[in-house]
């Protein structure tokens, strides 16, 4: 066999060792640290805590899941969390589409460069600082209140702040998708008689669907798992993350916290499976 064409199919012994050496560290990380932690989460979700001693009982039990499924408070918190994640995602799409379109198709290369910087820069600032900045903004008698009024601390504030935090993750994939969309497609649509809105609905949006889904994976999952923003600007409202936090800390019921943590994981798996069909995972 010609060594020059020895590639994927015919890995020689030496090359196989090289490949193994190259991949061992990441595979170890993925296997132990990443999937291992998930496995521990999953297993401990089926354990319980002894009510008297507070010790973890390592026996298989569906008690935690039964509690989550039957008690109304958990159902409400789950629905509220999903609602917030959906709202954040939808608002992000609505804001990101025109922004990304302007960047990719209208702005001069110079302006485009500045806009990319403007979108990326907030990602370098600490999450906490940004959330507290919004707490100040949204406060009664705060800067926002004196100009247009403030919704006050609560779910609306949570949605606003989460949208602010995750918007770049929606703009960037849509921007990348639009960059790949040839201008000639827009011209062809106009040439065939379509006005701007029609071209957007008939050509741009369908082609961008995978990019939008790709962005939504970030905005949806990051919103679903968040528990800090809601503590800072959420007033009394609670999301899934807060329940996990409360059960790990105050209640000291790690198995129940693990069981609650499984809820967003399951929602995300369902979501990813649905989204995979659109080809969005290739866009990441």
């Amino acid at each position: 066999m010609d060594p020059g064409v020895d590639n994927d199919q015919g890995l020689g012994g030496r090359r196989r060792w090289q490949l193994a050496a190259l991949l061992s560290a990441p595979m170890l990380w993925l296997g132990v640290a990443y999937l291992g932690a998930l496995a521990v989460l999953l297993v401990s979700a089926f354990w319980t805590v002894n009510g008297f001693t507070g010790e973890v009982v390592r026996e298989f039990s569906l008690q935690n899941f039964r509690t989550i499924a039957t008690e109304e408070v958990y159902r409400n918190v789950t629905l509220r969390s999903v609602g917030v994640a959906v709202a954040v995602t939808v608002i992000c799409v609505v804001l990101a589409l025109p922004m990304a379109f302007y960047m990719a198709k209208v702005a001069s290369p110079r302006t485009r460069g500045w806009l990319v910087i403007a979108i990326l820069t907030p990602l370098w600032a600490s999450y906490l600082v940004k959330a507290y900045a919004w707490r100040v903004l949204l406060a009664n008698d705060g800067p926002l209140d004196s100009v247009i009024g403030t919704p006050g601390y609560g779910l609306v504030a949570v949605v606003i702040v989460l949208t602010y935090l995750w918007l770049p993750y929606m703009i960037l994939p849509i921007y990348a998708g639009l960059e790949r969309l040839p201008d000639s497609l827009l011209e062809a649509s106009a040439d065939l008689g379509a006005r701007g809105g029609r071209t957007f609905r008939g050509v741009v949006l369908p082609i961008l669907i995978p990019s939008i889904f790709a962005g939504s994976i970030f905005t949806f999952s990051l919103s679903l798992g968040d528990y800090i923003t809601v503590q800072i600007v959420g007033g009394k409202s609670q999301l899934i993350g807060n329940l996990v936090y409360a059960n790990v800390g105050a209640a000291n019921n790690l198995p129940f916290a693990a069981a609650i943590a499984c809820v967003p994981v399951i929602i995300m798996v369902v979501y990813l499976t649905a989204v995979r069909r659109s080809g969005a995972l290739e866009e990441l």
Binding site: P182, A188, S189, A190, G193
Partner: peptide, 29 residues
């Protein structure tokens, strides 16, 4: 604007809509 002119164009890169099949492309106009 282009959509108010009675001309049609065959583009150098063809500019076919990738998300539509052949007949949908032809029907677009």
């Amino acid at each position: 604007p282009p959509y108010e002119r009675d001309v049609n164009t065959v583009f150098q890169d063809y500019a076919l809509f990738p998300h539509l099949n052949v007949i949908e492309n032809v029907e677009y106009g």
